[in-house]
Design a binder for these strands. Structure first.
Lengths: 244, 244
DNA sequence: CGTTAGTTTGATGGTCCTCAAGCACTGTGG
DNA sequence: CCACAGTGCTTGAGGACCATCAAACTAACG
């Protein structure tokens, strides 16, 4: 059972359902096939039909789509405890790319194993559906960022969101977190140009709100930043299990 | 069984799993509690904890979030066959609003019924997860629209997407479809101002690509529009059931 | 026939993009 | 030990795209 206890995914799912011993065991089995990938490795190609999903154990990844013009849109970043490629198991073909941003460790899950696990323990299916819903909520908030917030609010909101998500798996505290993203990554995620991201980061730093530098995010004025970005954790919240 | 056969949701889910008689019966049961709402009725309030999900039988709805500045971002439009408020059943509280755009008919589904259905027929859970994944793919494409496409491409892409989705439930053909949206709706969905939407629609009409007027979308040059918008149906596709 | 919601068009300006060039840091090979 | 390249960061100048403000117009409806 320690395997699951130690896994970020187990921790996440337990926030939604109180998992029984049997369900724990089934979840453990999904963690069997451990693999490592180097930074830059593509786990999933747009347009290919896909065999596996992955549970991210350590490192950062990102999912993105590309346009014929060569620009790309990063849809979301994945951190430990997140499931990679769930959608591409269920849909016919992958409609996006997934790439390791750092060296990562994952558990590979075959579609058959996933469906078999659902068949055995429907509550686990509900829990995975919950996790997928939460991911969608993140994507939606991301869309609000791009559609209706100014560049400055957008960057502030995004840095806070990643901080909150990382803190749920013990990878951030209130002062900040290590962050492997370049300004180009931020630009591609937030629908901005890298040049403008740079200017915005400078502004936020000069205003004493947040410092993004040398692979680290430091919240200089957490309260001020939260107020400025209108950051509300409701869409990320998980206070107590919903299903007993 | 005719109930399910006739329901747009049944049609949608059968594209993913070949449903057995038992699964059909469970799905029928979810359609029992039929209700009607008038245009403008709010089915779901941001911040409230939610009791029910709804399966949309007829009419249009939309989900959106609001910002303190008073602006709003429409996340997606729902058409017959779509599930409303699934996320708010699973997450603690609703993080968005859902509103009827036209008079609508829905089947109300209580969370307990949904979980019970999952327990009885895990394949139905997988099918619902598939439907949720597809909805997320739509939201993601929507994000690409806002983040990386010009206003003109964005409007063109959106009109094509709705056409394709509607055609899957028999509410559109290649020449166009009836559409209850105002230019304000388009603006709120696409991250534009209503004034600019108007100018873009005029341009698309003058270029002979598509006409949006008096509650109707008419594709004047479907091929040209698809090319212009770089529209690829991959993310919406459902050619054959994945699970036999 | 007044009211209201939605559409259309014009004028002005701000946000953010693009292009361009210089800087800082890191690792590599001569 | 020092070019040198590569990657990412920084700053400037000019301009495009789209927002905002404002006002007239149309259609529907009581």
């Amino acid at each position: 059972m320690t395997t699951v206890d130690a896994s970020p995914l187990g921790r996440k799912l337990r926030a939604f359902v109180a998992l029984s011993d049997v369900e724990f065991a089934v979840l453990s089995r999904l963690h069997q096939r451990r693999r490592s990938f180097a930074a830059g490795h593509a786990l999933l190609h747009q347009g290919h039909s896909q065999r596996s999903a992955y549970i991210l154990a350590s490192g950062w990844a990102c999912s993105y789509k590309t346009l014929p013009t060569g620009t790309r849109q990063i849809v979301d970043f994945q951190i430990p405890g997140d499931i990679l490629g769930l959608r591409s198991v269920l849909l016919q073909a992958s409609d996006h790319f997934i790439e390791a941003l750092t060296d990562i460790e994952v558990s590979e899950v075959l579609p058959s194993e996933l469906f078999e696990a659902f068949r055995e323990t429907p509550r686990l299916a509900a829990a995975v559906l919950w996790a997928a819903s939460r991911d969608e909520a993140v994507v939606v908030e991301h869309m609000i960022d791009i559609g209706r917030r100014s560049a400055e609010e957008r960057v502030a909101h995004f840095l806070l969101e990643m901080g909150f998500r990382l803190s749920l798996v013990g990878l951030a505290d209130k002062t900040g977190y290590p962050c492997p993203l370049s300004q180009f990554h931020l630009a591609d995620a937030l629908g901005l140009s890298a040049v403008h991201v740079n200017r915005v980061l400078r502004k936020l730093r000069e205003d004493g709100l947040v410092t993004f530098r040398r692979g680290n995010v430091h919240f200089d004025d957490p309260g001020g930043l939260i107020a400025f970005a209108d950051f509300d954790t409701a869409y990320l919240d998980q206070e107590r299990p919903l299903l007993q």
